[in-house]
Amino acid sequence: MKNQIVKTEGVLLGYRLTRRRLAIAVTLTCLLYLAGYYLAQHWTLSNFALAQLKFKPARPFRIQTQEPQSKPTQQIALSETAKPASSSFQSFTPPPTVSTPPPSVPSQETVTLNENPTLPSQLPASDLATRTVPSLSQNITATTSTNDSIFNLPSTLPSHAAEEILPASAEPVGNGIGAGLGNSSGFSDVGQLLNADLSDQLASPEGVVIRLSNEVLFDFDSYQLRDTAIPPI
């Protein structure tokens, strides 16, 4: 019966075991277990010890708070340097030190006053901007103005030109006598011409010129007389 059970188990395991082989296998298993346990307890590496696996406690980390200091700088520097080395708090930043001494005023220095102050010959640009440009002499303007024309005035005028009043374009322009008898826009006033005696002017070579504006007489780009053209004509 026992042999039949063993055979059945051996068939299930894929081996045909006998009682003797089964006893040998159990014995070897126990020996391997004991050998492993012994090595685990007594086998050590040459450069290794379990003491090295001890965990170090967490390092305390403190942040230096920035608090308003009412003390002078010099006292702070002294207090920082006077802190004992065995203190658990260590600042990561070097303690502030005063490198430059405060300015000192010599007590025996003499100051001389300049009783006749003079301006420098060359002023800075910011000062020159507020000053007027000196007028050029007439000789200089005569050489620079090469193109004398009524419509091309020289860029630099003589010094006395600033006092002259240039004729405005609204003033009557032209050689006609009638042109002078006009309104402020430079055109003729027919009513004024009617009241004036033009006998002498008619005999002149230029005659009497009656100047009328196209804006009064015509529309834009047109040669048809406007209604406003009837009164002056």
């Binding site: 374009s169 005999a203 070579p205 005659g207 010129v209 196209n214």
Partner: peptide, 22 residues
């Protein structure tokens, strides 16, 4: 008037002149 001037400046150039002469 200035022929290079603006439209306003050339107002006198846009004109009709009637010349009377004996």
């Amino acid at each position: 008037a200035n022929p290079q001037g603006s439209i306003e400046e050339q107002q006198l150039n846009r004109r009709v002149e009637i010349r009377l002469r004996t």
